[in-house]
Computed example of a mutant assay.
Amino acid sequence: MQTRIRFTASKAPAAQEAFARLVNRYGQSDQRRASVIVALGGDGFMLQTLHAQSGRDLPVYGMNCGTIGFLMNAYSDDGLPERLAQAEEALLNPLSMRAENVRGKISQALAVNEVSLLRQGPQAARLKVSVDGRERLAELVCDGALLATPAGSTAYNYSAHGPILPIGAEVLALTAMSAFRPRRWRGALLPKGAQVRFDVLDPDKRPVMVDADSRNSVRDVISVLIHSDPAISYRLLFDPGHGLEERLIREQFV
């Protein structure tokens, strides 16, 4: 059966140029009839594309026209239908975030990589951390904290000195940024099914904001509830031998 390709591209000039070449060569499928999305850009655009595909169950094959491109394949004009036919699929369950701010407003969002809480002012945040309804840290004083999926473990989590997680690992990484109390706390590995709650202990003096994949910011939060959502799966396609498992291993030997 012929692969019906729908191309999307970031606004970067390199991505727009690639978009024009590929559409001219392979055509552009109607969005309602497409069997695969080919995303042209960097990791940020891949996350944007995945969020836009929620509920459509279409696989996404990325080609790097950005900078790092951890979630992308190498770019080439040639042999795209053959590459798509041979591609290996990875399924990712996003994190579901529910945040309440000081005015009682509830905000919800999904995150493929991580949900991060960040201090909103000059003073460190004071957080209480609970897992599955049980208090685990009565006070975490830090610049911020995040909960990352295996797919997101090489992104913000890794920059914050969190662990790299194998893509098939049934765990999440809870990582603090610049922890002051407990001194140099290195974080924790939690079961994938865990429900994590952050409570902001001093929201007036030490305000905190929360981000889901650095794209859904909520300011002045007082509590954030996060869990992995098994009911939602994002489908990513990778060239054989270059899937997420290999990339996560390779990243640790750079």
Rank of each mutant, 00 (worst) to 15 (best):
D199H: 06
S29N: 12
A87S: 09
C65K: 07
L147F: 04
P94Q: 08
L147D: 01
R83G: 06
Q16R: 15
D132K: 03
I226F: 00
G243L: 05
Q108C: 15
Q120L: 13
H227R: 12
R206Y: 10
A212S: 12
H161W: 12
S153W: 03
L84Y: 04
L146W: 02
S228G: 10
P163Q: 13
A179F: 02
E82N: 10
G121T: 14
N113R: 09
K128V: 01
L95Y: 02
G121F: 13
A39P: 01
N101C: 05
A148R: 02
D213T: 03
R25H: 12
L95H: 02
I226W: 00
R186D: 15
N64L: 09
R247Y: 12
L40V: 08
L140P: 00
L172V: 04
F70W: 10
P166M: 10
G168P: 11
N24W: 10
E246Q: 15
Y158T: 07
S107I: 04
G193V: 07
P94L: 05
A39W: 01
Q53D: 12
L50C: 05
V38L: 05
P240S: 09
V210G: 07
R250D: 15
S130I: 00
E139F: 08
L80I: 13
S35C: 08
V129D: 00
V38Y: 03
E139P: 11
V254L: 15
A14I: 11
S29K: 05
R56W: 09
I249H: 15
G44E: 08
A151L: 08
D220K: 10
R98G: 07
V221Y: 01
Q48A: 12
A124V: 08
L117K: 04
L137G: 00
L190P: 03
D213Y: 01
L84E: 01
R183H: 14
D213S: 07
V115W: 00
W185Q: 07
S76R: 09
V38M: 03
V171L: 14
R134W: 06
Y61L: 04
L147Q: 01
A176R: 01
G104A: 11
S10C: 11
P230T: 13
E88R: 08
S96K: 09
G162H: 03
R250H: 15
L92C: 12
R33P: 06
L110K: 09
I68F: 15
V224C: 05
A20M: 11
L40E: 05
L190D: 00
I106P: 04
D199V: 07
Y61R: 01
F45D: 06
D30L: 10
I232W: 07
A74Y: 05
D30A: 14
F253T: 15
R119I: 07
G144K: 02
D204E: 15
A39E: 06
P191D: 07
E245I: 11
A9E: 05
A212V: 03
Q252K: 15
M177A: 13
R206Q: 12
A15R: 01
S178Y: 08
L244Y: 05
V38A: 01
S54D: 14
L165Q: 04
D43C: 06
G79W: 03
D43K: 06
G187V: 04
A194I: 02
R206N: 13
N216K: 10
A20W: 08
I249E: 15
T149C: 09
